[in-house]
């Protein structure tokens, strides 16, 4: 009898836990559903009385209007190119940098590291003019390269990964070195495999930031052929008149969906990499 009661208690606990989780999930998903629902309604139907979460009238042409208003297909491809290269280049730069800052001894290391991460303190707006100037001198205005280049040496990423690398015991590196491993081999076989969660986490953050970045791409690009999704969406946010909410939400869906689908399909990988308990033994 006692055992049964305990079991029931445990089950109730589970149920309660799930109820709370579902409630939180609901809070997270309602805005998305609302946006979706707004995006498929005619604009006059959205602003009647009531919440209007469930559409009674449909207008899927909103999506066509969006596609006609700006070349969203091109924007999507550009965004994917820019984000992919930003993340790849970032990882190529910051992982070795983090390794050097964490594990190598060289003159001025700490000062250099301090300068390196000091860039975290500068908001983009503060360095937009010098960055613009550099891009102009390099002849890179209105290119996708210009949207990638300023972000490659990420102070934030270097800091994050360096802290992780510092945790990895010196003895592991020593034994790899005894086996004849060079720096790159150590990185590849010791440091990176043991730091997967943090690297994945940084990549995710970086993908989301650069997917949604608006200000810098707006400043540095000129023609639709190189511009990104966020700029396209900006066309529907209006300062002087009310926004055209149905179109705005259709545009929002266009921006959110690719990323959402990407996350859903790779969910397992992300969660796994974040769950791995770094089972390090000396």
């Amino acid at each position: 009898m006692k055992i049964k009661l305990a079991k029931i208690k445990e089950k109730m606990g589970h149920l309660l836990g799930h109820a709370i989780l579902m409630f939180i999930a609901l809070i997270a998903i309602v805005p998305l559903i609302w946006a979706l629902s707004t995006s498929i309604q005619p604009s006059h139907a959205v602003f009647g009385q009531g919440i209007g979460l469930i559409p009674t009238e449909f207008r899927f042409e909103n999506y066509l209007d969006i596609l006609n208003a700006a070349p969203f297909g091109t924007y999507l491809i550009n965004t994917i190119i820019v984000v992919t290269f930003t993340v790849i280049m970032q990882l190529l730069v910051i992982i070795p940098a983090a390794y050097a800052f964490a594990k190598l001894e060289f003159f001025g290391r700490d000062v250099l590291f301090f300068i390196f991460i000091a860039q975290m303190l500068l908001p983009l707006q503060a360095i937009v003019v010098p960055n613009y100037d550099v891009m102009r001198v390099l002849g890179l205005i209105n290119t996708r390269t210009a949207m990638v280049l300023p972000f490659i040496a990420s102070g934030y990423g270097t800091f994050l990964i360096r802290q992780q690398f510092k945790q990895i015991p010196e003895s592991l590196i020593e034994s790899a070195r005894i086996d004849g491993a060079g720096h790159f081999t150590i990185l590849k076989h010791v440091m990176i495999p043991l730091s997967k969660p943090i690297i994945t986490a940084f990549s995710l953050i970086s993908i989301v930031i650069h997917w949604n970045d608006y200000f810098w791409p707006l400043i540095i690009t000129e023609t639709p052929s190189v511009r990104t999704l966020a700029i396209g969406l900006g066309m529907f946010v209006q300062q002087e008149s009310g926004a055209d909410w149905t179109l705005l939400m259709a545009g929002t869906m266009f921006i959110v969906m690719p990323l959402l689908i990407f996350f859903i399909f790779n969910q397992r990988i992300f969660i796994e990499s974040l769950m791995i308990k770094s089972g390090m033994k000396e």
Binding site: A69, E222, M235, S241, G242
Partner: peptide, 15 residues
């Protein structure tokens, strides 16, 4: 000529 313009009101004004 490079011509910068803002869009201040609703509608597909950019196009």
């Amino acid at each position: 000529l490079n011509f910068y313009y803002p869009v201040g009101v609703a509608g597909p004004l950019a196009s």
